[in-house]
């Protein structure tokens, strides 16, 4: 048990070290997200009175796209010198390797999201009334994206057209996350919906728990098939 935790930490630390040293992902993801926010601003801000209506949607579209861009980059490193297998051939449970990669993606995307969401809140003049719900939905939603995205980007590491395949495969599965996330975000900026943010947050938590289990269990079997 503790061995697994140590190995988890080692993989996570290794990825963090590589990212800090190369800063590739930081630049691509950050730049992409910020540009997206600008595009949305120009596309929607001709009617600034209704930002509460489309603001939450923009948050989630940006989050989903940056998470996906980050996914592809994540496994580029492992593909380079066959390194994913260097870990899988070690006496480490495959699930531990997967968990470390997914966690790395999660932490990274959340850090990026902090910046882009702050930008969106400023540009679109959103008033965040329920900070807990706002932040909670982003964290839980990103977790779902990290779990599903990491599983498939590992599998598609060597596939043709993986940049297209990855969204094609993950978006249908992640639609519930986007629906739930937008609901909670909208409620937290004061949209007059007759909804229960708590219920939607529990929905997201349930999604993360079920898919957390499913992805960890499937990863080993799928990568070795």
């Amino acid at each position: 048990m503790t061995a697994g935790l140590r190995q988890f930490g080692a993989v996570l630390a290794k990825d963090a070290r590589i990212e800090f040293r190369t800063r590739d992902i930081v630049y691509t993801m950050a730049l992409f997200s910020i540009l997206l926010v600008f595009v949305f601003a120009f596309a929607f801000l001709s009617d600034p009175s209704r930002t509460r209506d489309y603001g939450p949607g923009i948050v989630w579209v940006t989050l989903l796209f940056s998470a996906t861009v980050g996914q592809n980059r994540l496994f580029d490193r492992e593909r380079e010198n066959g390194c994913l297998w260097s870990m899988l051939l070690a006496p480490v449970p495959a699930g531990v390797v997967f968990a470390a990669k997914a966690t790395g993606h999660f932490l990274f995307t959340v850090a990026m999201a902090a910046v882009t969401v702050a930008l969106i809140v400023v540009f679109f003049d959103l008033r965040v009334l329920d900070v807990g719900g706002f932040v909670g939905s982003l964290l839980l939603g990103t977790a779902g994206m990290s779990l599903v995205g990491t599983l498939f980007s590992a599998m598609l590491m060597n596939a043709r057209m993986k940049e297209v395949l990855l969204p094609l495969v993950t978006f249908p599965v992640l639609v519930p996350v986007v629906i739930a996330g937008v609901k909670v975000t909208a409620l937290s900026v004061g949209a007059p919906l007759q909804e229960d943010a708590g219920a939607w947050l529990r929905f997201l938590l349930g999604f993360d728990m079920i898919f957390g289990a499913v992805t960890v269990l499937l990863f080993g079997r799928m990568i070795r098939s």
Partner: peptide, 15 residues
């Protein structure tokens, strides 16, 4: 490749 598709079909159920 077949294994990846199979994994998607399994995940599709909770999805």
């Amino acid at each position: 490749g077949r294994g990846v598709a199979a994994g998607l079909s399994i995940m599709g159920i909770p999805a």
